[in-house]
């Protein structure tokens, strides 16, 4: 017994006559254990961002230097034709990729939700591309797109001799080759999220709608889908995030070609930093990627917080 009743009977105050040293140390154990992770995350999230931000404002070229140069790098980045191609590609890619992957994902989820046989078999097929890297997917699809022995070759062999399908060799359409492959890779993911959402809908609501005489189609349109709108938003945000970070797929599928027609912001960053020795401008471009993510994620986080508060408020 470390504290006797008589000494502290007058005024007990947790700081004036604190717990024994052993207990006080025990209380600090969790914080000690957490410190390395806190430091690592802090380094990664804040120090690295600040560092890259600083380099983007410096006159670095081949090696990081710290002569302050203001927004010069940003100006030259936005003046660059290749950056223009990169962000136009990003917009085109994001629009098609997000919309189509969600549409196909939703359709697959609805199909699988119809009490079908061998459900897990179908799900396994639609989801396996996610286990595979973008590099593998991109490599294999680049073969399929190859006119001399891919799709085009197959269809021509079947008798349609003037069939052309040469997306990857056409500057104008190569971006759509990446779009299609991206959709192929990710619609299973959208399906998994939608399916999780569909399964989380309260069964009693569905029964009530059926008793009200609603058809399956109407039940989905009026009852089930409206109740999973947060899932739609979540899927859209995650897919947008993927598309902003698109790098591996573009490298493996077209390697930014033909020419520079399928440059993406992320591939351009790599190019600036490690092929052309334009570290400052590369850092500026990577800050632009971060800003794009922030534009998507900050409103979404605010929405989430608002949504949770509202849910909590309702009970």
């Amino acid at each position: 017994m470390s504290v006797s009743a008589s000494t502290s009977a007058a005024t007990y105050n947790s700081s004036s006559n604190g717990p024994p040293l052993r207990d006080r140390l025990a209380k600090l154990v969790p914080i000690f254990v957490l410190v390395p992770s806190i430091a690592a995350s802090f380094l990664y999230v804040f120090v690295f961002t600040g560092w890259t931000l600083y380099i983007s404002l410096s006159n670095s070229t081949l090696l990081p230097t710290y002569g302050f140069e203001g927004l010069e790098n940003y100006a030259s980045l936005w003046a660059n034709r290749r950056w223009g191609i990169a962000y136009t590609n990003l917009f085109v890619f994001s629009a098609f990729y997000v919309v189509c992957a969600m549409a196909i994902g939703l359709m697959l989820a609805l199909l699988i939700d119809q009490k079908i046989r061998a459900e897990s078999f179908w799900r396994t097929i639609f989801l396996y591309p996610l286990a595979v890297s973008f590099i593998v997917t991109g490599t294999v699809w680049s073969w399929l797109y190859n006119p001399t022995n891919g799709f085009e070759f197959l269809i021509r062999n079947l008798g349609w001799t003037d069939f052309t399908f040469a997306l990857t060799t056409d500057r104008k359409y190569a971006i759509y080759a990446i779009v299609i492959t991206g959709i192929w890779q990710s619609s299973g993911f959208a399906m998994a999220l939608f399916l999780a959402g569909l399964r989380s809908v309260d069964g009693d609501i569905v029964k009530a709608a059926q008793i009200d005489g609603a058809s399956t189609f109407r039940t989905y349109r009026k009852v089930i889908l409206p109740s999973i709108t947060p899932i739609f938003l979540a899927v859209a945000v995650v897919l947008l995030q993927f598309s902003i970070k698109t790098f591996d797929l573009a490298v493996a599928l077209t390697n930014s070609g033909p020419g520079i027609s399928t440059t993406f912001p992320a591939t351009y960053v790599y190019d600036l930093m490690f092929q052309r020795g334009q570290i400052g401008e590369g850092a500026a471009a990577s800050m632009m990627i971060l800003s794009a993510l922030a534009v998507v994620l900050i409103p979404y986080s605010i929405y989430l917080v608002w949504h949770r508060r509202r849910e909590a408020g309702h009970g």
Binding site: L34, I38, S41, Y44, V45, V47, S286, M287, I289, L290
Partner: peptide, 26 residues
Amino acid sequence: FPGSEIIFTCMLLGVFMPGQIALLPW
């Protein structure tokens, strides 16, 4: 502990960071 929620939120930010940001520092 006091501040643990803030620490968690900060760690969470790492989920969203694009790799390009960390290339030069790494």
